[in-house]
Simulated scan of single mutants.
Amino acid sequence: MTPAARVQAAIELLDETIEAAKREGAPADRLIAKYFKQRRYAGSKDRRAVRELVYRAIRHCGEMPKTGRAAMLGLANSDETLKMLFTGEGHGPKPIGENEVAAEPGTAPSWLMEELAKSGISGEAAQALLGRAPLDIRVNTLKAERDGLVLPEPGEILAAPQAVRLPAGTSVEQWEEYRSGKIEVQDHGSQLACMAAAAKPGETVIDLCAGAGGKTLSLAAAMQNEGRLIASDTDRGRLSKLAPRAERAGAGIIEPKLMNPGAEMDALEEFHAGADLVLVDAPCSGTGTWRRKPEAKWRLTPAQLAKYGELQDMLLDIASKLTKPGGRIAFITCSLLDAEGADRVAAFLERNPGWSAEEADIPLGTPRAKGLRLDPFQHDTDGFFVAILRSA
């Protein structure tokens, strides 16, 4: 592909990304993979270059642009080399019209920027949400220890006890250490959030929103494969991915439990007031993960944000029924909005006067109301809110 043809390919993919954001369709990375699966002639350099252009344009635009071309024109206004490729030659984009409108630069839609600012995220902290995410791994202590493990490539030792940072793009899935379950890919912030939960050997622990089990595996390692670890979710597809991951990791105490939406307690009735720890890694807007999915900023609406808050309240109430007297809830969201963090904890404590919030014991984090916040700017992690709630 010529450089101009790469720009045109990026424009087409941006059009697809914008439409997908409007209708809650596939994420950008999946659209890019599908696009090139249908265009086998494109080489690896072409794929990397087009992918880079797509994500650069997404990060450059605050409001959702009307078209992929408008998004790319907005990027070209700050890159003269890119602008020179709008000639219409070599399968490239047609020349720029005199009255064409380019997308304005920005970080996120204005309403969302206001919500972030009210939550204490603005300026450089807001811009950092759209940086480039690193590649972090967790050494699985069921099979290895960070101090004694020699990896094919050296990495940076991080604050979490078993965390290592590697160069972005490292193909760890090809390593024997990954295939044998000695390491797992997990963001440093996610590892710290699991550390805050402080799961212990012999406890009864419920991962209420386990998904594909990334945090479940971390809990199993902390428990040293001793106790009961229930991995529950309402998504059969995501939960089905846990079993092979658990087998590879040697996590033998995990018990998958599929729940029906709206009837979660029916599946978990045997654990009523019986759990030492309930991890609520609640569905949320994902504002803390924009470094990995920058187009997510275009998918969120005020109404959706309100629905996430209602869902988080419901999950916390379920968790409180499952927690034994003196037990605890670890409430986690990968969001930097108070509406999905500090506000939810405050509302829970108001509904449950016998409960209290405790300080999370982790080496990084900034206090935020009754919890801790991790963010890309201050801690170079994905964004998280973490709160530890203790039953009377």
Rank of each mutant, 00 (worst) to 15 (best):
A42I: 05
R299G: 04
T67L: 03
G354S: 06
L135R: 11
P65K: 08
L337S: 15
Q127M: 15
L166P: 06
T216N: 08
A168M: 01
A212M: 02
Q162R: 14
A369P: 10
S391F: 03
Q162T: 10
V139Y: 04
G88W: 10
I137T: 11
D79F: 03
I332A: 08
P152Y: 04
D235G: 01
E114S: 03
I206L: 08
A306I: 04
K324R: 12
S171D: 11
I121P: 05
L31D: 06
T170Y: 11
K200I: 09
A71M: 02
A222Q: 11
A347C: 05
E269A: 04
D266Y: 04
E100Y: 09
D233H: 00
P244N: 00
D147W: 04
R39L: 05
L322Y: 11
S122P: 02
L13V: 09
K297G: 09
G365C: 03
D281M: 11
G148W: 12
R39H: 10
A196I: 06
T381R: 13
R291H: 03
A306Y: 13
Q162L: 04
E124I: 02
M1R: 05
A357F: 10
T2A: 05
W111N: 03
D79A: 02
R368A: 10
L53P: 04
V345G: 02
R344K: 12
K370Y: 14
L229D: 01
V345N: 00
R56E: 14
L13Y: 02
R132Y: 15
L300K: 06
T81K: 09
L166F: 00
A33F: 08
A369M: 07
G181M: 08
A210I: 13
L374Y: 09
H188E: 09
R47A: 13
D338R: 15
P3D: 05
M84Q: 14
G92K: 12
L311N: 13
A220L: 10
L389H: 09
W175S: 08
R69A: 01
I362N: 04
L82A: 07
E264D: 06
K370D: 09
S356Y: 13
W175C: 10
L364H: 02
V50E: 00
P93V: 08
W175H: 08
L217Q: 01
G371R: 03
G309R: 10
A49P: 11
P244M: 12
G383Y: 09
D266K: 14
V54F: 00
A26H: 03
M113L: 14
D46W: 00
A108T: 13
D313V: 13
K321L: 10
V101G: 02
M259W: 09
E52I: 01
T107A: 07
F36S: 11
L311F: 06
P134M: 11
A159G: 07
A128Q: 02
A9M: 15
G181E: 15
C209H: 02
A193V: 07
K200W: 01
A160Y: 01
A303H: 02
T81S: 10
Y308N: 13
F331D: 03
W298S: 13
L372Q: 13
A117R: 14
D343C: 04
D380H: 12
D187Y: 09
L364M: 04
T366Q: 13
L364R: 00
L311R: 14
Q8S: 10
V164Q: 05
A126P: 09
S122F: 05
